[in-house]
Amino acid sequence: MFEGHDPYLVALSVVIAILGGYTGFGLAARIRGTPDASHRVLLAGAAFFLAIGIWTMHFVGMLAAPLPPGTTYLVLPTIISFLICALVVGISLFFVSTGEPTLLRVMSSAVLLGVGIVSMHYVGMHGLAGPFAMRHDAGFVALSVLIAIAAAYGGLRAFLARQGGVQLMLSAIAFGIAVSGMHYTAMAGMHLVAPGEGHRHGEGLAASPQILALVVALLCFVIAAGFLLSLVPDGRKKAAADAPLVPEEVAPKAEAIPAPRLRAMPLGGVGQPRPVPAPRLPVEGADGTHFIDAADIRSVRADAHYTKVHDGTRERMCPWSISEAEAQLDPSLFVRVHRSHIVAIPHVSFVRKEGDGAVIELDGPSPHRVPVSRAKIAEVKARLGLNRRHA
């Protein structure tokens, strides 16, 4: 095990991992709250800052280690280690940011991300060049893999929880400590031993520790800048969350698109008010929040904590969950045909049995199809008047 690490650089490496985790997962958490056009930009930014944070933490930790004199860093393995990190981070975030975030999907992404982080570490380690031979203890290698997977799973769960503020910072701290723990666990299992006659570990184009320190310092400034920018509130997201709750009396008179009204009526003589289904659903556009009439809605699809509303032409993000949307839509016109799909029965133009379930097509300029679960086939047939036909 190495002794004599520079404590200041060790502390800096942990801080870098925390800031990178906060910035990356903070950006990734906004993916589900923005229009489709912004998804790629946010996903790329999240992957970039997470990869930069993890990679920079690794090499700050390397600079903190008491390496033998004359040690240099091979350029090609060092670049490859960063590309590995960026690739697995991007794939993992994409995998959990699209579709239903099931346990299997999140676990698969965590394993991929954890193995990618460990691969980045060991590829970077073998980028060391110097008069020594390198050995690794199998037990420490296995432990570092487990720590990396656990860190990846915790980070992805923080992303899916849509946390912000103090909660996101606490998650980032846990993620940064776990990633740093993986690095220093792997370092504890690495041994530089005396080489054979004339042996030198690593050959190729190399950079000195001084050059690496300059690159790392630059990336530290990039991470710090990204962290500060991530603290700027997302006004559009806040407006989307607040829009359904704005009372009619306090809404601005000049508002071009007013918030949906909620009228109250007595419930069974008890005198308690209940909301009447809203005639419109809020959807996000590039310029802010719009409202779509229920008559124009073809389908509603669950997308984690949000939904996608299809108006016959395209899908747009709605800040409501599928349960909230179902509660507001008229049950005589809309039916939940799948745990993740609601359809407008008047707009159904085609139905066909497929496997254990069925598929239906909704009309519009851009017709689209929606799956029907086996448990809902009878209800859909009854709503479409097909029971008499097939009796």
Results as ranks from 00 to 15, higher is better:
114 G>W: 06
291 F>Y: 10
190 M>F: 10
229 L>S: 03
51 A>T: 08
23 T>M: 07
344 A>D: 10
124 G>M: 11
44 A>T: 11
66 P>E: 12
140 F>A: 12
189 G>R: 08
149 I>L: 01
5 H>A: 14
45 G>F: 08
85 C>S: 15
383 R>N: 00
37 A>E: 13
103 L>G: 10
378 A>I: 02
70 G>L: 10
62 M>C: 07
183 H>V: 03
219 L>H: 12
36 D>Q: 12
70 G>N: 08
275 P>W: 03
62 M>T: 12
366 S>K: 15
314 R>P: 03
309 V>C: 03
237 K>R: 11
102 T>F: 05
81 S>Q: 10
342 I>N: 05
98 T>W: 02
44 A>K: 02
318 C>I: 07
385 G>Q: 07
188 A>Q: 10
95 F>S: 06
38 S>K: 13
327 A>N: 09
54 I>T: 15
35 P>S: 15
124 G>C: 13
291 F>N: 02
376 K>N: 11
28 A>E: 00
299 S>I: 04
10 V>Q: 03
220 C>N: 15
239 A>K: 05
55 W>T: 11
344 A>L: 01
151 A>G: 08
323 S>I: 00
146 L>R: 02
37 A>S: 15
100 E>C: 01
36 D>P: 01
8 Y>T: 09
148 A>P: 01
110 A>V: 11
35 P>C: 13
211 I>K: 09
354 E>P: 06
383 R>P: 00
312 G>C: 12
212 L>N: 13
157 R>P: 12
54 I>R: 11
356 D>G: 15
80 I>H: 00
83 L>K: 11
